[in-house]
Amino acid sequence: MAAGADESVLHQIRELQVKATVEDFTPVTVKTKGIVTWADPALGKYFQIQDDTGGMRVEFTGPDGPKVRDLVEVNGTLERGPYAPVISAATYSVTGTGELPRAENASGGGLLNGEYNGLLVDIHGFVRSAEIVPPNIFVALLSSGSARITLRISNPGDLNPKDWIARQVFLRGVAVPVRARSSLRQLVDVEVHGAAQADFYSRGPMPPDPWAQPVMPLHEAFQ
């Protein structure tokens, strides 16, 4: 159960992130506000928000979630979370709509360092693999510098995985930590989650269809 707190005090997200990392932290009731940068009701009762100081995951209790670009005030329980601080058991109210914050230009290495956790980012690289997974998510493995980053795009529309293999692509989405080393809480994996097909694109003409080429024996491929 969360410890008591003054729910009338509006905290910035960075304040909450720092509060949740102190050694003697216990869950506490908090209030914050921000703009929704990612949401997909098909994936569960949570969304991402961001303010001028940082970004955070919110897990809510009501029947319906907000939409991307909604301005929200959130009341809930601040917890450390499995990979990064989260606000759980939250209620929220929509106070308007706004423009998304400027996306940070992120590299694969910077993402894995935790530099952009919870923030809206722009990332680019070459697609190494792609597929559609249930309920309807476009998932691609991106080669970005020396790192491999998984992209997950909700509401993918007519994105066909075969069309994107080996293409240089760009995605605007939220950097989401997804795996850490047990009690050390050392970050080891980050994904970038896009809210819609429009957030994912490629520049330049589509390359020749690799699936239309004849099968080449391996001993010829390396000559």
Rank of each mutant, 00 (worst) to 15 (best):
2 A>V: 11
7 E>H: 04
8 S>T: 14
9 V>P: 02
9 V>I: 13
9 V>F: 10
13 I>P: 00
16 L>M: 12
17 Q>N: 09
17 Q>K: 14
18 V>T: 10
24 D>W: 08
25 F>E: 07
26 T>I: 10
27 P>T: 10
33 K>P: 03
33 K>E: 11
35 I>K: 00
38 W>I: 02
38 W>H: 09
39 A>N: 03
40 D>K: 06
41 P>G: 09
44 G>R: 05
46 Y>Q: 12
46 Y>P: 02
49 I>P: 00
49 I>A: 00
54 G>K: 00
55 G>E: 00
57 R>T: 10
59 E>R: 13
60 F>A: 11
62 G>C: 07
67 K>A: 04
67 K>W: 04
69 R>A: 15
70 D>K: 07
71 L>C: 07
71 L>A: 05
71 L>H: 08
73 E>K: 06
76 G>W: 03
76 G>N: 08
82 P>W: 05
92 Y>T: 05
92 Y>L: 05
92 Y>Q: 04
95 T>Y: 03
97 T>N: 08
97 T>E: 08
98 G>Y: 03
99 E>N: 09
99 E>S: 09
99 E>T: 13
101 P>V: 01
102 R>L: 09
102 R>I: 06
102 R>T: 12
106 A>T: 02
106 A>V: 01
110 G>W: 03
111 L>M: 13
113 N>P: 01
113 N>H: 04
115 E>Q: 08
116 Y>R: 03
120 L>F: 01
121 V>D: 00
125 G>M: 04
128 R>H: 10
129 S>C: 04
130 A>I: 07
131 E>T: 14
132 I>Y: 02
132 I>L: 05
133 V>R: 03
135 P>Y: 06
140 A>I: 06
141 L>H: 09
142 L>H: 12
143 S>G: 09
144 S>E: 04
145 G>W: 05
146 S>H: 12
147 A>N: 11
148 R>D: 09
150 T>C: 07
150 T>I: 11
152 R>Q: 15
153 I>T: 06
153 I>D: 01
153 I>R: 00
156 P>C: 14
160 N>K: 15
160 N>Q: 14
163 D>M: 06
163 D>T: 12
165 I>C: 01
166 A>C: 12
166 A>N: 15
168 Q>M: 15
174 V>W: 00
175 A>D: 02
175 A>T: 04
176 V>G: 00
177 P>K: 05
178 V>N: 01
179 R>A: 14
179 R>M: 14
179 R>D: 13
183 S>H: 08
186 Q>R: 13
186 Q>G: 09
188 V>R: 13
191 E>F: 08
191 E>M: 10
192 V>K: 05
193 H>S: 08
194 G>F: 00
196 A>L: 05
196 A>S: 14
196 A>I: 07
199 D>K: 05
200 F>V: 02
201 Y>S: 15
201 Y>I: 15
201 Y>G: 13
204 G>V: 11
205 P>E: 13
206 M>K: 15
209 D>W: 12
210 P>Y: 08
212 A>N: 07
216 M>G: 01
216 M>N: 07
217 P>F: 07
217 P>M: 10
219 H>S: 10
219 H>Y: 12
220 E>H: 10
221 A>C: 10
222 F>Y: 13
